[in-house]
């Protein structure tokens, strides 16, 4: 039975070199040549002055910006260095309180608006970094953003339409709006 010790150690060594060094280096090399932007985090803007990652949401709280999903990362929301969800169960009073506070914040920012709030706008995402909201959650905020920016709701609506991504290949996933891109477009920093 001890005759297996030597091959066990040597095999582990060879597999470590092959799958732990050669394989990730080969993937990195190919990825950096073929997909350099994606492999480095899909940054928007120039390399010297990046505006953020297309894939990672940022926190927005002011009325003139579209707000993203609530984020449960700590110590600050949308902490790109420590992802995670709230892990609150459906009957947890803390969840109910949090949702209530989020609804109140939305209503306070736009008192004229009293319709039911789209669920993704008041529930924390799984990663805490969700870059998207549903088209329903975007429409819900058009009035507030338009008022704060002194724009016509129609022109804001037009921008929302432009940044709404359909299901991939018409089938996969869900329709969604990239919040960071939309807000950058509102600031005319991104086309």
């Amino acid at each position: 039975m001890t005759n297996h010790i030597k091959p066990a150690i040597l095999m582990l060594l060879f597999f470590t070199v092959l799958t732990g060094v050669v394989y990730p280096l080969a993937v990195t090399l190919c990825a950096q040549i073929v997909f350099p932007n994606q492999a480095n985090g899909s940054l928007l803007g120039s390399n010297e002055q990046p505006l953020g990652s297309e894939l990672i949401g940022q926190a927005f709280n002011r009325p003139e910006y579209f707000w993203g999903r609530p984020s449960a990362t700590s110590p600050v929301p949308y902490n790109g260095g420590a992802s995670g969800g709230s892990n609150q169960g459906p009957t947890n009073p803390a969840l109910i309180d949090a949702v209530q506070a989020r609804i109140k914040a939305l209503r306070d920012a736009d008192p004229s608006h009293s319709e039911a709030v789209p669920v993704d706008l008041v529930t924390a995402s799984a990663s805490g970094l969700d870059p998207h909201i549903s088209p329903a959650a975007a429409s819900y905020q058009i009035g507030r953003v338009a008022k704060a920016r002194h724009m016509s709701p129609d022109s804001v609506d037009e921008l929302v339409e432009r940044y709404t991504e359909p299901r991939q290949w018409g089938v996969l996933g869900e329709p969604r709006v990239n919040v960071l891109k939309l807000n950058l477009a509102l600031d005319q920093r991104y086309e």
């Binding site: 459906p90 949702v99 319709e115 039911a116 669920v119 088209p135």
Partner: peptide, 19 residues
Amino acid sequence: VEQSVSVDQSGGNMEGKET
């Protein structure tokens, strides 16, 4: 909170899920 499914949102229990 509006949780019903429509063309504009997947609805449902979205706590801990990605859009």
